[in-house]
Design a binder for these strands. Sequence first.
DNA 1: CAGATCATGTAATGCGTTACATGATTTC
DNA 2: GAAATCATGTAACGCATTACATGATCTG
Lengths: 194, 194
Amino acid sequence: MSLEHILLGQLRQPSTGYELGKEFDDGAGHFWPAERSQIYPTLKKLEQKGWLTCSEQPSERGPRRKVYATTDAGFEELRKWLTEGPQIGRERLAYIAQVYYLGALDDFEAGLAMIRKMQARWRQSLALFEHIERAVVEESGDWQDLEPCDFFPRASLGTGLHLMRAKLAWCDETIQRLETRVGSAAATPAQEND
Amino acid sequence: MSLEHILLGQLRQPSTGYELGKEFDDGAGHFWPAERSQIYPTLKKLEQKGWLTCSEQPSERGPRRKVYATTDAGFEELRKWLTEGPQIGRERLAYIAQVYYLGALDDFEAGLAMIRKMQARWRQSLALFEHIERAVVEESGDWQDLEPCDFFPRASLGTGLHLMRAKLAWCDETIQRLETRVGSAAATPAQEND
DNA sequence: CAGATCATGTAATGCGTTACATGATTTC
DNA sequence: GAAATCATGTAACGCATTACATGATCTG
């Protein structure tokens, strides 16, 4: 329902599918992953709807590029999406499902292993977010001085941080409870990465 | 990638598509919403894969029902899903996107309105989760006494609680920051529901 | 007999993923 | 000339949503 809106949001400056694709690797990709194979056709669809215009331009380095820019109608659609109400309540969270059904294995140790792996992954994410936060704070200073265009991206980073810390707090709590349940040899450290 | 696994997890007891559909309204639906129109064909697919068996039975009240049960192969698939690693990292969180792009409106007040609506929704969810928790604690007592089949569902409820509280803490923090930014007439209370 | 509840589906459409195709330019 | 980077796509498939179809049984 929404790559369209993400792209409208991302296109504050005119840009190409290729560049937008790269932006998904770090920023927007954290809350809305997308592949270029989906981005290109979606841009075309947005153009057909009249929400973007496209101008072809030669590139200095490589083949011709299509530069897209938002139209008034496109901005209006973005505005609607940002005022009509929060998009909440249909998220699919596979990791919660995994925790929920872990009981089927009837094995605390297997569950403990799973949750330690989650902990390891989320620690990495938290470290990354904290790194980004430090960089952002250094660059644009304190909350009081921020314009909306800097305030809200920073606020969204804040959600990420709060969420990660909550997940890790839950991991700590749950791992502790599990460790009292599995016998003694429960010192297998978690390892694995993205 | 995963309604199949959710259904395998849900089918600890033999059950019908209709009943499974109802279960999604409260329990599993919180982390994995699904419609019956998707559940029925998916059950059929799982049967074809040999992960479920199906036996048709007359119903006391209404038409004949198809009762599905997990096979050994089905359980093996569930086991694999629960041990192969956490399903983390491709979640699409539209509400974070909305916060991120709110800057496009260049209007702190509009952002404040949006975040207050989020707060209202999440307060409802938190109240619901806390209600469920009280019921569960009353029914099955303290953590120490729980078997895996009760422990892990309860732990997953814990994630939900931690997550909701984190979201609300972020709302409080962000609303406060925004209130110092919008002038004086910023007392519009949030209202709206699911 | 009207309406609620039980019960199972199909069809059309849309969104997302994976794999593959193409080709220009720059750097080593 | 091989590899990296720039740049745009298509095709096949799978998963999810929406809307609609069908019909039995029970309750008032």
